[in-house]
């Protein structure tokens, strides 16, 4: 009967493994069109990564960070600059980078594939690929506005790590984490944990780990609502065609 016992044990083991695989191997459903909440859509006037409403204390800037934050001239916040005075990259139709782009009111779409997750952003028509095939970061980095992203699933969440951003360069070539001008360096490591908190709501818990700009890693979050419309084309450079007075700042 010992053969029978082994068979039973084996079956139990296989059933157990199968159950574990079912529970932990399921990919959470995150696909769809999502949009951050702005004033008229039930959210704050404009969401930001670091504000008293979201975190209890200011980001822990290093000396390097303080000096650069002082040079930021955002068009929002406590002392907003005018569009002509501002050095916000977005006013030149330059990319906002991550995680700044999440804090725009424009929607984005998540497409989950077996070996990667694709994010399509309406703002600036840019895309982002998060590799989930187990690869490592490239040994020789290519620094970009949106960095290089690898990810994996943990229970109901997609966890993303992004490195190799183009960091803050100069007063006129700012790189911000959000529209209030919090700077980042090319050492930024962005960690995101994305999950559905209900059928209609997506949550992204964000950790900023940038030892050049911040003394310690710090956290924030942003939520997005599900949208039933399709993404469409948004070409920022049409700005150059505009004949509206405010679209023609004197530079």
């Amino acid at each position: 009967m010992s053969g029978y016992r082994i068979t039973a044990k084996t079956i139990l083991l296989l059933v157990g493994l199968s159950a574990i695989t079912t529970v932990f191997g399921q990919t959470p459903e995150l696909s769809g069109v999502w949009q951050s909440l702005w004033g008229g859509r039930g959210g704050p006037r404009y969401p930001t990564l670091a504000s008293p409403a979201l975190v209890n204390e200011e980001p822990p800037l290093t000396q390097w960070g303080q000096e650069r934050f002082a040079l930021a001239k955002p068009i929002h916040g406590a002392n907003p600059a005018s569009a002509t005075e501002s050095n916000a990259a977005e006013l030149l139709c330059l990319p906002m980078g991550m995680p700044h782009a999440y804090f725009r009111p424009r929607p984005f779409e998540i497409i989950q594939l077996p070996d990667r997750v694709v994010m399509l952003f309406e703002t600036d028509n840019f895309w982002r690929v998060i590799y989930t095939d187990g690869r490592e970061f490239p040994e020789i980095p290519l620094h970009t506005w949106n960095g290089y992203s690898i990810g994996h699933y943990e229970g109901d969440s997609l966890v993303i790590e992004t490195r190799y951003f183009i960091g803050w360069e100069s007063e006129q070539q700012q790189r911000w984490l959000d529209r209030l001008g919090w700077p980042h360096s090319d050492e930024l490591r962005l960690i995101e944990k994305i999950r559905r908190i209900d059928e209609q709501t997506l949550e992204n818990k964000i950790t900023i780990d940038d030892p050049i700009a911040y003394k310690t890693p710090w956290n924030s979050s942003i939520t997005f609502k599900s949208r039933d419309f399709e993404l469409a084309e948004f070409i920022c450079q049409e700005l150059m065609l505009s004949e509206l007075p405010e679209m023609k700042p004197e530079r």
């Binding site: 702005w38 008229g40 006037r45 068009i75 929002h76 907003p80 006013l91 009111p105 405010e246």
Partner: peptide, 10 residues
């Protein structure tokens, strides 16, 4: 207000 707020201090 749900304007895109390009110009908070416009």
């Amino acid at each position: 207000v749900s304007i895109e707020a390009h110009h908070a201090n416009s």
